[in-house]
Amino acid sequence: MKALRSYARLIYWDWVREAKRLDTILSMLLFAMITLMIFSFAIDPMSETGVRVRAGMIWLTFLLSGAIGIDRAFRGDGAESVLQGILLAPVSRVTLYYAKVTSTFLFVVVMEAITLFVFCLLYDVEFESAAALGRMIVIILLGTIGFVSVGVTLSAMTRTIKGGEVLLRILLFPLMIPVFAAAVDATKFALAGDELTMKQLVLVGAFDLVYLAAGQILFEVILSDYDAS
């Protein structure tokens, strides 16, 4: 119960902090809109190629913009003293990890929801039924969990390194290949209005579990010794 209370508190205060500066969500959104625009200029959304690559486009937009939000998890004004304060509180590192993953996940999902809406307008995507839209949402949420779970750990690891923002992306993007390959594949089906297969969902879900477990273990190691991390 105590761990759950701490978990909820950490998420709540992360959101209060974000509400004061709004820089995480706004920068992610702005970047996502620019990326979508560039894609729509480069490839005619209505062309055959445009339709074929749109699943990849949406996930590439999520990846590039979401990395900004992940980067912000442990960076920004006063982030180090805030982190010290949290590490000195009677909160376990595991609770902190899941709270950070959840709040970052929610920030990224807000960006993804708005981006998906704009994407549908730009690329003239229409979901034939609520079920089709639901399938798309499920796959986006599953893909984002994998993305954020490993991203938060890497963000903690690179937060004090000079050029850590770049290093974060260099480490994060290759690790995301399996989740993204599976998510793009499933998104193709969802955009075409086809049913998702259990295999597709299990694949993305399995990567999520592996990344969450690995992220949690690494996160504890990284933050067990503050000055060395």
Partner: peptide, 25 residues
């Protein structure tokens, strides 16, 4: 006690103390 308060710099002092005491239960 270290060299800086442990709450976000954009928080007011009152808000910061609420944050701090909440975190420390």
């Amino acid at each position: 006690l270290l060299d800086r308060p442990f709450f976000p710099p954009r928080f007011s002092l009152e808000e910061g103390l609420r944050y701090f005491t909440d975190l420390y239960e």
